[in-house]
Amino acid sequence: MALSETFRKALEQKDIRMVRIIIKDSLVVDPTFTEMEEMLREAARAQLDLYDPHNGEELNRNREQWNKAYMDSQMTTLLRNFSRERLDLLKEICAVLYADRIQNIREKRENRARDSRSTQHNVAAGGVLLALAITAAVIWVLWRR
């Protein structure tokens, strides 16, 4: 997955706040966390110190009580206290609240991958047929001489 130019620029400029905002937003945009994991790897590769020590706030781990309001409050707090603990909690919350969306995204990705493999197969088959046609034409021309 290609990372946005905005993210790459923020990394290049060591703009930790902007990197954190983009990572936070990616939790909702891509709740499969594929993009976020790539961003975290790139931030680590750029030796950007993203994480704060957890501020000690008791995090609600009761899935039954998770809702959009709690997620929103934790998203807001994440920008003031970008701790691994809070980010991990938000990943869990998003996985629960966006379970249907996650399934849809995964199905779309699988369909795109399958379509891509099918296209590659068709292109390869077309190439083989073209090569056979050219070979047949060459043999026919040589045979007629």
Rank of each mutant, 00 (worst) to 15 (best):
L50G: 05
D49T: 09
V29G: 00
K91C: 13
C94D: 08
G126H: 10
I21C: 06
S118T: 13
E92Y: 02
A113P: 00
L48C: 04
Y70S: 08
L27W: 08
A99N: 09
L79A: 07
I105A: 08
Y51A: 07
K24I: 02
W66M: 01
E37G: 01
N111W: 06
I16D: 06
Q65T: 13
S116L: 11
D88A: 14
V123P: 02
R114D: 02
T119R: 15
R41V: 07
E42M: 07
L40G: 01
E35R: 13
H121L: 12
R61K: 14
A113S: 08
A44L: 02
R84G: 10
I102N: 07
G56P: 10
D49M: 12
R84C: 00
E64Y: 06
E12Q: 15
I22L: 13
G127D: 09
N122Y: 12
D72C: 01
E58N: 05
L59G: 06
T76E: 13
D30K: 04
E92R: 14
Q74H: 04
E57N: 13
M39F: 01
E57C: 09
T119I: 10
D15F: 03
A95P: 01
R101K: 14
P53K: 15
R63P: 04
Q120I: 10
R63A: 14
Y70F: 14
A44D: 14
R117E: 13
L79S: 03
A46V: 01
N104Q: 11
N104A: 09
N122H: 13
I105Q: 05
E110S: 07
E92P: 00
N67R: 04
D115Y: 06
G56S: 13
E35P: 01
D72T: 05
D115C: 03
D100C: 02
N81H: 05
